Simulated scan of single mutants.
Amino acid sequence: MENAELIIRCATQGDLPRLLDLYQHLLAGDERADDASAAEAFGQFLRYAGSAIFLGEVDGILVASCVLVVVPNLTRGARPYGLIENVVTHKGYRQRGHGRRILDAATAAARRAGCYKLMLLTGSKEAGTLEFYLRAGFEQSKTGFQKRLIPVLS
């Protein structure tokens, strides 16, 4: 349904199978976690105060998600910072504003957690992806580096 309402909420343990299915729209061919490993990782994740996995559903279908990790910090008056990761929208539901609304929910949560900044990295060089993040209020203002500990999927 084109005009169905997007319901945004935080993930629970019971959402893991559908969330892992949605992640196939993020990186096709990515190694899927088994149920026990996913449950363990989710439990560890919940121990980061203020952190959440945001889900967007349309008519009961999981169509978008992003992860917010709130990281304790000793600078900036001991205010934490937020990291956004695993931003994904189901291929059949893109270009409808769902990804933007999920990022807005994560941004609001980061503010409530007292974060002084919110960061995300993307490996994409696609102009549309970069423009999406700019339209969502992020600026391309830092230089990012990474050290890959597993090979990059192509």
Rank of each mutant, 00 (worst) to 15 (best):
Q13S: 10
K125A: 14
L103P: 01
I53H: 03
G128V: 09
L118A: 01
V58W: 04
Q13E: 14
L55F: 07
I53N: 07
Q24E: 15
R96P: 02
Y23C: 11
T122D: 02
R101H: 02
G99F: 00
L19R: 09
L120A: 01
L103G: 04
R111F: 02
F54K: 03
R100Q: 08
T89C: 05
I8V: 13
G43H: 02
R148Y: 03
F138W: 11
R47A: 12
G56L: 07
P72Y: 01
S124L: 05
V70Y: 01
I61D: 12
E131Q: 14
E131Y: 04
G82K: 02
A108Q: 12
V58G: 06
G50P: 10
A113C: 06
T12G: 07
A39Q: 15
N3C: 11
R96A: 06
V88D: 03
A78D: 10
T122S: 11
F42S: 11
I7D: 08
E139H: 15
A52M: 03
A49C: 14
L120V: 08
S65P: 03
T122F: 03
A108V: 06
L149W: 00
A28C: 05
Q146T: 15
L22R: 07
D30V: 15
I150M: 09
L46C: 14
P17R: 06
G114D: 00
H25S: 13
A64R: 05
D59S: 13
T143V: 15
A33Y: 10
L118G: 00
G77H: 05
S154D: 07
H25I: 11
A36C: 12
A78Y: 10
T143I: 14
D34M: 15
E131F: 02
R96I: 10
M1D: 10
I53A: 02
T129G: 04
R47D: 00
A4Q: 08
Y23M: 11
G92E: 06
H25D: 12
G97I: 04
Y116A: 02
A113G: 01
V152P: 07
G114C: 04
R18G: 03
T129N: 06
D30M: 11
L149H: 05
L120Q: 06
A39K: 12
R135D: 06
L121P: 04
S37V: 11
L121I: 15
D15T: 13
F42I: 11
G43Q: 10
S154E: 03
Y133C: 08
P80Y: 01
L46Q: 10
Q13M: 13
Q95P: 02
L26I: 11
T122C: 05
Q95R: 14
D35W: 02
N3W: 03
E85A: 05
V70E: 00
V152N: 06
V152A: 12
G56F: 01
F42G: 08
F42V: 12
L22N: 04
